[in-house]
Design a protein around this nucleic acid. Structure first.
Lengths: 336, 336
DNA sequence: TTGTAAGCGTTATCAA
DNA sequence: TTGATAACGCTTACAA
């Protein structure tokens, strides 16, 4: 049986409330009794039961960071920043990996309404925007969305302008005089992916170039999809001159396929990827990418959630951050 | 104010205990009252406070998976398996990223003794084996160690035989007639790394080849370390013919350096890495690696912890799994 | 400065 | 089948 406050109180010959005050560094305990109590606490390695604490105080000082896929590139940067901000503000962060499983997502969301955590940040994914949020959450739950969008209820949200990202990537390719640029993307059901596609369209429109239906390749976003997409496209009568690839895994696959086909990047095909990661940094040649302000994303989300918690300030709003293009060799940048 | 059992009881015109029985599917409630209660529960989206539940039941059905670095290759496989096994057994898993921060590690470990979670799995890292475990934990805490070792107290442990891994990698290189094989590793303070080094020694000893002091390069394990190590070694009068690199990040760096130096793999240098990951799979040429049974590691650890919890079966023991060598092009396998 | 006692929101025991 | 009521282990007025 683990020790309780009561045990410590008995040993020290004081009341439970005195022990509570002592271990919580609250005023109203003489130095002498405090010392006596803390010695006993140390000696027996007493740890207060946080379930009881949470119940009494109505707060846990824990935040949940719910994410759909641990391996998504860039998530680690966001996670780290969230953890840092949280820690600075005396909150602990636990990570909840839904692995794109609906049941799990529900269960993790419940952590908030069931008072296991004070609030939650939901990071990306295709799941969050369905009706789960509405059914799982209570109005007063503190939630912040990152890189995903809720259509049903208004929830504070921080996201990157993916349409802008798609626009920058595509424009960069078109600006170099390429007339035929293909996009290899994930599912257009995914809000973020559809936004990238919108940007792709917009860039074409601006240049007055008509988009070819066959140059839009929608996939499930896996490495193999990137690989297969290339060979699918080489079957066309007219090959594209450039590729906008919306994820690093797809980019890896595409580039493997290009090499397999004995073509060269950027000489035969210019390539622009999306998102900086260890993966895109290993790819040869160095990949031009749309880079997202990941740390800023994490910082804003964490700060937002903590503000919500501290001020009960429930005004909802959406913050949109801008991505930037990092030009490298793969897109055959014009010689300066 | 969120609703409580009491509110539901009042609305349904029954006692709290009846509501509790109804929502927990316990016998002793007539179908009729049960239905009435559950309807109200649904209507108001009532969620029982799990802090109170945990306090009363003395269990949370949550497991913590504590890890030092989210980006360690292979962790995701272990994590997924742990989550699966846990879910099958009706446990929820939360991830705790210490980011190699001592304070955080302590705080996360405390989740167990402070009754926030029922048990914890500690995944790898250099931290866990110090005296933290002893000071942080109570004897009755349910903990399982994965890929790390506690010298102070006996704790159930599952790990991969890293000495065997180092041995296999080195022997493979020596078996091809290479006389001079260097090792590029992380800190030898790290138990796992020191074991790999032991294997490296053992393979040399078996062949009767004396190890050269300068061929053992200890680093902090970063990509740049791998890069720098190569140029450090090319300063030697006699170059090695092969490299055993103990992590994927080091391997990336080394290979970049080799290419930068206009050498070829495997023609000029044979390379063997450690651990399969997306990274090693991208590297060109395909990397020969020591592969660990990651899922098995996760499965065993989770099962172990759950057994501990269910049976209070506190016998400690250590399970050691064997790695296998996956031969690919980078090590210049002899033509069959 | 210290102690008493009433919560916090559940579950579980015992009567009814 | 139901309902009181005492835990669970802590915090926090309020009193002493």
């Amino acid at each position: 049986m683990p020790l309780t406050l009561k045990d410590i109180a008995r040993m020290a010959g004081v009341a439970e409330s005195t022990v509570s005050r002592a271990i919580n560094n609250k005023p109203g305990v003489s130095e002498k009794t405090k010392e006596k109590i803390l010695n006993i606490v140390k000696e027996y390695n007493f740890k207060p039961n946080q379930l009881a604490q949470g119940l009494a105080k109505k707060e846990t000082h824990i935040l949940a960071l719910i994410l759909s896929d641990l391996t998504t590139p860039g998530y680690t940067e966001i996670i780290k920043k969230v953890e840092d901000i949280a820690n600075e503000n005396n909150y602990q962060v636990i990570l909840c990996n839904t692995n794109n499983d609906l049941e799990r997502e529900k269960a993790y969301l419940d952590l908030v309404s069931k008072h296991r955590v004070d609030g939650a940040i939901i990071l990306g994914g295709e799941l969050a925007d369905k009706n789960i949020l509405r059914t799982a959450l209570n109005k007063e739950d503190a939630i912040v969305l990152v890189n995903c969008l809720s259509e049903e209820i208004l929830i504070p949200t921080v996201l990157v302008d993916n349409a802008m990202g798609g626009y920058l990537a595509t424009k960069h390719l078109l600006d170099q005089g390429l007339k035929r640029v293909a996009i290899i993307m994930g599912s257009s059901e995914d809000y973020l992916e559809s936004e990238k596609l919108n940007g792709y369209f917009q860039a074409h429109q601006e240049k007055g170039i008509k988009v070819k239906r066959e140059y839009i390749i929608e996939t499930t976003g896996k490495r193999k999809d990137g690989y297969d997409s290339f060979f699918k496209i080489t079957k066309l009568s007219e090959l594209p001159q450039g590729f906008f690839v919306t994820s690093d895994l797809l980019a890896v696959g595409l580039i493997e396929a290009v090499k397999m086909g004995a073509y060269f990047i950027p000489d035969d095909f210019a390539v622009v990827g999306y998102g900086e990661s260890i993966i895109t940094s290993i790819i040869n040649p160095p990949l031009t990418v749309v880079a997202e302000p990941l740390e800023e994303l994490g910082r804003l989300a964490a700060q937002y959630l903590i503000d919500l918690l501290d001020n009960n300030d429930l005004e909802e709003s959406i913050k949109v951050l801008e991505p930037v293009l990092k030009v490298r060799k793969s897109s055959n940048p014009p010689v300066k």
